[in-house]
Simulated scan of single mutants.
Amino acid sequence: MKRSSAVIRRVVLAAAAVALAAGCTPDASGTGTGTGTPSASASASSGTPGASPTDSPTSDGKPPSPSASAPTESPSGSPSAGTPAPKALLGDGDENEQVRELQARLRQLDFFDRAPTGFYGTMTAGAVKKFQSHRGLPETGTVDETTWQRLLSVSRKPTADELKPATTNKLDTPDPRCMTGRVLCISKESRTLAWMIDGRVVSSMDVRFGSENTPTREGLFKVEWKARDWTSTIYHTPMPFAMFFSRGQAVHFSADFAARGYAGASHGCVNVRDKVKLSALFDEVKVGDKVVVHW
Rank of each mutant, 00 (worst) to 15 (best):
M1K: 10
K2R: 14
R3G: 02
S5H: 07
A6P: 04
V7N: 12
V7G: 11
I8H: 04
I8S: 09
V12I: 15
A16Y: 08
V18W: 14
A19S: 15
G23H: 00
S29M: 13
G30P: 04
T31C: 01
G32H: 03
T33Q: 15
A40S: 09
S41C: 04
A44E: 10
S45N: 09
S46N: 12
S46Y: 11
T48G: 09
A51L: 14
T54R: 15
P57H: 08
P57A: 13
T58R: 05
P63W: 07
P64Y: 03
S65V: 12
S65H: 03
S67W: 07
A68I: 07
A70L: 07
E73Y: 11
S74D: 03
S76Y: 11
S78C: 04
P86S: 13
K87T: 15
A88E: 11
A88H: 07
L89I: 06
L90A: 05
G91F: 03
G91H: 02
D92S: 08
D94N: 14
Q98N: 04
Q98M: 08
Q98W: 01
R100Y: 08
L102T: 02
Q103P: 09
Q108W: 09
L109G: 04
L109H: 05
D110I: 10
A115L: 01
P116E: 10
T117A: 06
G118K: 13
G121D: 06
G121V: 05
T122M: 12
T124Q: 04
G126S: 11
A127R: 10
K129V: 06
K130M: 12
K130E: 15
G136A: 10
V143G: 07
T146D: 09
T147D: 00
L151Q: 02
L152V: 02
V154A: 06
R156C: 01
K157I: 12
A160W: 08
A166F: 10
T168M: 05
N169E: 06
N169R: 10
L171C: 00
T173K: 09
P174N: 03
M179P: 00
T180Q: 12
G181S: 04
C185S: 13
S187W: 06
K188H: 13
R191T: 14
T192C: 05
T192K: 05
A194F: 08
I197P: 00
D198Q: 06
V202L: 06
V202I: 13
M205H: 06
M205A: 11
M205T: 15
G210L: 09
E212W: 11
N213I: 07
N213R: 09
T216F: 02
R217C: 05
E218K: 03
W225G: 00
W230A: 12
T233D: 13
T233N: 08
T233E: 15
I234G: 05
H236L: 06
H236Q: 14
M239R: 01
S246F: 09
S246D: 13
G248R: 01
F253W: 10
A258W: 01
R260I: 05
G261A: 06
G261D: 09
Y262I: 08
Y262F: 13
A263Y: 01
G264L: 14
A265C: 02
H267Y: 05
G268T: 11
C269I: 04
R273Y: 03
D274W: 02
K275V: 01
A280C: 00
L281K: 01
D283S: 03
E284W: 08
D289R: 05
K290N: 13
K290M: 03
V292L: 14
H294S: 14
H294V: 12
W295Y: 15
